[in-house]
Design a protein around this nucleic acid. Structure first.
Length: 476
RNA sequence: GGAGAGGUGGCCGAGAGGCUGAAGGCGACGGUUUGCUAAACCGUUAUACUGGUUUUGGCCGGUAUCGGGGGUUCGAAUCCCCCCCUCUCCGCCA
């Protein structure tokens, strides 16, 4: 959520931001409604103050008179009763006016909130302008150097055949031949875009996640957390996934069967992690908070019909190791964390010798809540154009996404800290938040299997993963 | 799933229609005392929105908030309704 005060002062900034992000939201209407609301609000407050003043004055008097009435008789009693009546009538007119204004306010609050939740965070000035993913810019590419695992290294500018001396299988062929995944039965059980990981497939899936969690916890000091993946609507709104992404989330309609409220399945562990400190005022000394979780992720993939239908790329349920950082409201610090969080992933990918590139996302591809976003794409030899002699050209596929949100998310979540440390002093400030994938599987198995496959159809296991597979060096 | 008890400031806890943004205690912060520490004593200690003023540090004021929302009332932490949450006992269960 953006700051309504800032919007009031500089509506153009937010209108331009929305435009750059291809988000349509009626800023002018929001500004107008807000102005009206403020007028009505101050009127109501003034009346209310008057009413409180009168109540404070006449209250004790009424009490005293009512005591006297009990003791009084005849004319004296009637006179006292009349006096009380007059005192009571005094604020009556105010009450009616106040109620009228309150109704007006309530009628304005709904639309204001609805609009406010839709206003995106304007992209940072240094984010390249573009209308969609085609406007994203490659800012770095990493190729594995020669090693025991990849004797000639791997150059994504060259064909797979030139790199390894044979035509590669796609991950679909690999998981079929190595019996790592059963798509048919997955679909039988759960419908389209479902799968069952089997045997070594499941073990590999677990191995990469365990490696990723251990790596973040042990090497970078992130606190591992297990968080809910079925959450209340407030948490989805607070983390910024609703209302814009409502169609992407599975909806558990408990209210329809007598429950008090509905629940939603989260599409990322970010929701549970960021929800932890919702409505809290943290100590500045606690910051930055660094959390890592591994959680199932559920996505309806609404609007993606017919896209990437085969294989493990686009599926309704997967598991993801996710990192979030909650830091002070300082742009320099936010930016520094963004770089670091991307660096953690680079190091992780390099340790598994997976070629990747960094993509600076353009304004049109940022999503409502980000000021800046860098995607990390891993090399997937089985994707891309079909080659004449068989196989595919290979292509980068998105495996990670690193977002920088300033206070947009924490404002919605009402997550603040007290500046200046020690309790009592210092003002409260909304925290900044950032998040990045550490590793999402089974999607990550695509580059892992495809890059490290051998001519005989077996797949080499990168050394860093072997301890999670009982020492297995090769899947065959 | 059945039965019951509760939700008050950073924490504990009183309050049961007006004198209550809320006693008291703990903690924290500032100060006094002290050779140091401790103790004692004094003071300060919620959040959001908002008006005025200002030598931009403040200063003075208003509104709202006692789990959330609605209602009764001239007036609600206190009475009524709905919801959320927590705890205890029984049942079931990975």
């Amino acid at each position: 959520m953006i700051d309504l005060k800032q919007l009031r002062e500089n509506p153009a900034k937010f209108a331009n931001g929305a435009k750059a992000k291809n988000v349509s939201v009626d800023i002018d209407r929001l500004v107008a409604l807000d102005a009206e609301r403020r007028t009505v609000g101050s009127q109501r407050e003034a009346l209310r103050a008057e009413q409180n003043r009168i109540a404070k004055e006449s209250g004790p008097l009424i009490g005293k008179l009512q005591g006297q009435i009990k003791a009084a008789q005849g004319d004296a009693k009637t006179a006292l009763e009349k006096q009380v009546e007059e005192l009571k009538n005094k604020p009556q007119a105010l009450k009616a006016q106040i109620q009228e204004l309150e109704a007006k306010e309530a009628a304005l609050d709904g639309p204001i909130r609805e609009l406010l939740l839709q206003v995106p965070l304007p992209p940072d000035a240094d984010v390249p302008v573009g209308s969609g993913s085609e406007g994203n810019i490659e800012i770095k590419r990493w190729n594995p150097p020669p090693s025991a695992l990849l004797p000639k290294g791997f150059d994504t500018k060259k064909s797979f055949h030139d790199n390894k001396g044979f035509a590669p299988k796609t991950h679909m062929e690999l998981v079929r031949d190595l019996k790592l995944c059963d798509f048919e039965r997955g679909v039988k059980v759960a419908g389209a875009r479902s799968y069952i990981l089997t045997g070594m497939g499941m073990r590999l899936h677990l191995a990469v996640q365990r490696y990723a969690v251990d790596y973040m916890a042990e090497k970078h000091g992130f606190s591992p957390m297990s968080v809910p993946t079925i959450v209340r609507e407030e948490t989805m709104v607070g983390t910024g996934f609703f209302p814009a992404g409502r169609e992407q989330a599975y909806h558990v309609e408990e209210s329809k069967r007598g429950g008090g409220y509905d629940l939603f399945l989260t599409g990322t562990g970010e929701v549970g992690l960021m929800g932890i400190h919702m409505d809290e005022i943290l100590d500045e000394a606690q910051l930055p908070l660094k959390y890592v979780t591994v959680s199932p992720c559920y996505r309806r993939e609404a609007g993606a019909a017919g896209k990437d239908t085969a294989g493990l790329y686009r599926i309704h349920q997967f598991d993801k190791v996710e990192q979030v950082v909650i830091c002070k409201a300082d742009e320099t610090e936010s930016r520094a964390w963004h770089k670091k969080m991307i660096g953690f992933v680079e190091e992780l990918l390099q340790s598994m010798e997976i070629p990747y590139r960094l993509l600076q996302c353009c304004t049109g591809d940022l999503g409502v809540k980000n000021a800046d976003m860098v995607d990390i794409e891993s090399w997937m030899p089985g994707r891309g154009a079909a080659l004449p002699g068989g196989g595919f050209s290979g292509e980068f596929g998105e495996t990670h996404s690193a977002s920088r949100l300033y206070d947009f998310q924490c404002r919605r979540l009402n997550m603040r800290y007290r500046a200046g440390g020690a309790a009592g002093k210092g003002e409260t400030v909304f925290c900044h938040s950032l998040n990045n994938t550490v590793l999402a599987s089974p999607r990550f198995l695509i580059p892992l299997l495809e890059v490290h496959q051998n001519a005989d159809g077996s797949v080499n296991v990168p050394p860093v993963l072997r301890k999670y597979l009982g020492g297995v060096e090769k899947i065959q």
